Simulated scan of single mutants.
Amino acid sequence: MAIEDRRLRERIARRQLITATARALAESEGWDAVTTRRLSTEIEYSQPVLYKHFGSMEEIVEAVALEGFGELAVTLREARHGGATPAGEVDRVAAAYNGFAADNPALYDAMFTRSTRLRFGAEDTPAPLIEAFGELRQAVTTIAAGGDVDTLTEVLWAALHGLVLLGRNGRLRPEHEAERLEILLARFRAAAS
């Protein structure tokens, strides 16, 4: 049993090395720089070893995205609980969401813009996606006055995502980022109540 345990630990460690290296390369050079050839060179394993862990680059991106959703859930949870009362939860969570996207652009791309098989609202939705959505939903619940909380959460998430991508791609004036977020949240609170 000890040999099997050791092999399992080694397999998990290699898998984590692959995803960590892919993520680091993507953050420093963009996702186009992340290829199986480049990864195998960086981690000093052959490409067949990579394919023992992941069937394709898309599976590597999905693994990175799942890690990202787990991290986003933690970030949003900390923001939600960062105040003495539920008042202001939506504001704190929205600011944390924007900060997470700004601090992790390649990770954010893996989570939301790269093609993956990860789906929200499906029977097989992975737990990290459910947890991240759940944290945002909990914050929206504090201001939802009888509306469909899931739909309100989807609308807020879509609006935050739009602001993130438009701002990051230089489509919006950077000096007005805080003002845009404040306007969005004020309108959202008014519509939700």
Rank of each mutant, 00 (worst) to 15 (best):
A159R: 06
G170D: 02
F188S: 03
L156Y: 07
L152C: 02
H161E: 12
S193G: 14
A159L: 14
A191M: 11
R171G: 08
L184F: 06
N169S: 13
L181D: 02
R171Y: 11
A191L: 11
S193E: 11
L165R: 15
F188L: 04
R173C: 05
A192C: 12
E182I: 00
R180E: 04
L160Y: 05
L184Y: 04
G167Q: 13
H161Y: 14
E182A: 15
N169L: 10
A159F: 05
H176Y: 11
G170S: 08
R168H: 10
S193N: 11
E154R: 15
H161P: 00
R187S: 14
A192F: 02
R180S: 06
R187W: 05
A158I: 08
L163R: 03
A159D: 13
H161W: 10
F188H: 07
W157D: 15
A190T: 13
L172A: 05
A158G: 14
L160R: 06
L172G: 07
T153A: 12
G162N: 12
A190G: 05
E177A: 15
V164M: 03
E177L: 03
V155G: 01
E179F: 08
E182F: 01
A158C: 11
E177V: 09
L165E: 13
A191H: 04
L166N: 12
F188W: 09
H176F: 10
G167Y: 07
L166A: 13
R173L: 11
G167D: 15
H161F: 13
R180I: 09
V155R: 09
A190K: 15
G167L: 04
R189E: 14
L152I: 01
E182T: 13
P174Y: 03
E154M: 15
R171W: 08
A192W: 01
E177N: 07
G170W: 07
I183W: 02
N169C: 05
L185E: 09
A186I: 00
A192D: 04
I183Y: 08
G162W: 03
G167M: 04
